[in-house]
Amino acid sequence: MAAGTLYTYPENWRAFKAQIAAQYSGARLKIASASPAFTFGQTNRSPAFLSNFPLGKVSILMPFFNSCVLDVDGIYQLSNDALRGSTPQDSAQVLQWVSFADSEIIPPASAWVFPTLGIMQFNKQATEQAKEEVKRILAILNQHLNTRTFLVGERVSLADITVVCSLLWLYKQVLEPAFRQPYPNVTRWFLTCVNQPQFKAVLGEVKLCEKMAQFDA
Amino acid sequence: MAAGTLYTYPENWRAFKAQIAAQYSGARLKIASASPAFTFGQTNRSPAFLSNFPLGKVSILMPFFNSCVLDVDGIYQLSNDALRGSTPQDSAQVLQWVSFADSEIIPPASAWVFPTLGIMQFNKQATEQAKEEVKRILAILNQHLNTRTFLVGERVSLADITVVCSLLWLYKQVLEPAFRQPYPNVTRWFLTCVNQPQFKAVLGEVKLCEKMAQFDA
């Protein structure tokens, strides 16, 4: 059974993935997100940290079962076969969705949401383009989930955990009812997932936004 | 044994990954990159194509062993266990490097190389920042390869195939001898890989650039 300590900062959506995976797999995971164990911005910039984790990214799982630590959130190490996909087909599908979340969802989601959190300058053109990208992504998911409860196979896998976490800020901040109305399957799937006890234990109560958050100067 | 047709366009470095994986795994792979089988710019815009491959990205592997096709280059489907990593630890490591290539190497590599190919407008600040990122990446790889021939385990895996392909344009276009001098392990590893018969069959002779290509108006 995997075990370890996840060094992170509060509300880190990437750490949520590892935490939820551990809820499902039973991996024993400690969270270190406050001093003295770990202070974001200090600990992760210290030479000792950087010599172990050259990317300097957080969240970081310790110990990792190899000297090379790049998968900063350790989701594979903390998972079990059910989460990773128990057949070659399913595991290839899981990897597809994990890659889809990282490469197709996170860029436009961040471009749209960060200005509403006040952590990035607002750029109207970039936000409008990001909205179109998000529509395209939701349409792909909606189509796929038309005849499915979960993204891969018949139960929650790393695919659902990763894609839910990458959509989290969108649903909490900007996907107001009118915007999400054309994608009912995605909303159904998202709510099914976040209401699973394992998701709830980590995310708490997830409330879908009622009004699209605007740029927060 | 996996088999299929890879729809792509010539010189598509993403397709190289699948082709090299197939060379190692023995998967029977046909390449369709010219009309009438596939004309980039026409076929990939057709409704039939987009109804099957919602992302609209190329290269695309057909058939894919599930209706959901997101992993556009099908590297996992075309691989065997040796390429994917034959132990849980190794396979987690392979996934780390594949994710590292996509999330850490491709962004700065594109920012630096695209202007030199005339794909994008030159931006001095973005290029300088990308150079620093590439240095950081090469330093991480150089450190890791200090005591290793390949990235994971004792032989070529999907990690080497993916990272080599993500570095390909850097070595061919801009990593001139003075720039790559501080990272000898990476150069040694890169040359070892591209001189493997399986790599050579797909990439041909890879020549490292002698002079850093500049912005191509």
């Binding site: 509060p10 860029p107 | 710019g41 920012a111």
Partner: peptide, 30 residues
Amino acid sequence: AAECLAQERIWFDKPRYDEAERQFYERMNG
């Protein structure tokens, strides 16, 4: 948490790069 989030390295321009690359190779392939 927002401050930490701001330090994440995100490839915001990825869609723009994807589009440029696609157009370039479509042009190259006539």
